[in-house]
């Protein structure tokens, strides 16, 4: 355990924990757009920047991204100092130039007092904030279907060669965890299309309800040792089967008596 001070309050944290997790546990609200508990910290959005110092630093201060900074003994953290707020405003100013029409960025910028960007907005803006949550989740899950391509102002998230990605299984984790809902997909209950790749959904043999994609189930059967018959019916039918089995077992002693 280490002891540190956050906004004047002494708190305890586990060794190796990142500052952002400790700050959030204290109920302090600081913006963080590229943070997701399923993946390693990345430090892309820079909004979780905080001011740190120590008694022994003789008044020197540093600004660090709290999502990437492990807690240290006797650290003194200020999450809302004037310089930190100024840094956040500058970052949001830049983000507003890149994503001027994204509601999440507009709202966050307005909350920090930035209503319009002082930079020249990009000519053809989109909603992607390049937080990398989609690619990192895809990598963590073991598919590596999409990645960031190009650098600088041309950077974007895309499948290899902008073709339907061969490794994608259509789990939708990238789209459902995108903070700005930029990744688009269609799902009509029989067929799903994401990254221009078409998937067939497993249809429950009993209820006719759609489940996950055939490709995703095949991956789980092959790599995670899940028996193939588990995927034949949906969760509702599984519960009905269990209830019928348990109901039958509960009757065993009863039949003997009558």
């Amino acid at each position: 355990m280490v002891t540190l001070t956050i906004n004047g309050k002494v708190v305890r944290a586990e060794e190796g924990e990142m500052l952002l997790a400790v700050i959030k546990r204290q109920g302090i609200d600081i913006p963080a757009l590229c943070q997701h508990d399923a993946v390693e910290p990345y430090g892309a959005c820079r909004l979780c920047m905080v001011e740190i110092t120590k008694e022994s630093w003789n008044g020197w201060k540093n600004h660090v991204t709290s999502c990437l900074y492990p807690v240290e003994q006797d650290l003194i953290v200020n999450t809302h100092s004037e310089t930190v707020q100024e840094l956040r405003r500058t970052i949001l100013d830049l983000m507003l130039a890149r994503n001027p029409e994204t509601p999440l960025i507009q709202q966050l910028a307005a909350d920090h007092g930035v209503t319009r960007t002082t930079y020249e907005p990009v000519p053809e803006p989109n909603d992607c904030i390049l937080c990398g949550i989609c690619t990192r989740i895809c990598d963590t899950m073991g598919f590596h279907a999409i990645s960031s391509v190009n650098r600088g102002h041309g950077k974007e998230i895309a499948p290899p060669l902008h073709q339907p990605p061969p490794d994608c299984v259509g789990c939708l984790a990238c789209a459902l965890n995108c903070p700005t809902n930029f990744i688009k997909f269609t799902d009509n209950g029989r067929e799903r299309v994401i990254w221009d790749k078409k998937f067939d959904l497993i249809i429950c043999e009993k209820t006719g309800q759609p489940g996950i994609t055939r490709e995703f189930a095949d991956y789980l059967i092959e790599h995670r040792d899940i028996p193939a018959e588990y995927f034949k019916v949906n969760d509702e039918s599984h519960r009905k089967e269990l209830a019928a089995t348990m109901g039958a077992i509960s009757q065993w002693g009863q039949e003997k008596e009558s």
């Binding site: 997701h36 399923a38 989740i137 899950m141 789990c171 939708l172 984790a173 459902l176 965890n177 497993i202 489940g211 996950i212 995703f216 189930a217 789980l220 995670r224 899940i226 028996p227 588990y230 995927f231 949906n234 969760d235 509702e236 039918s237 599984h238 519960r239 269990l242």
Partner: peptide
């Protein structure tokens, strides 16, 4: 990450 793998894989639908 809401991929629904566990929802589909649980043999008891729980």
């Amino acid at each position: 990450v809401k991929c629904m793998a566990c929802v589909s894989a649980c043999p008891f639908g729980c």
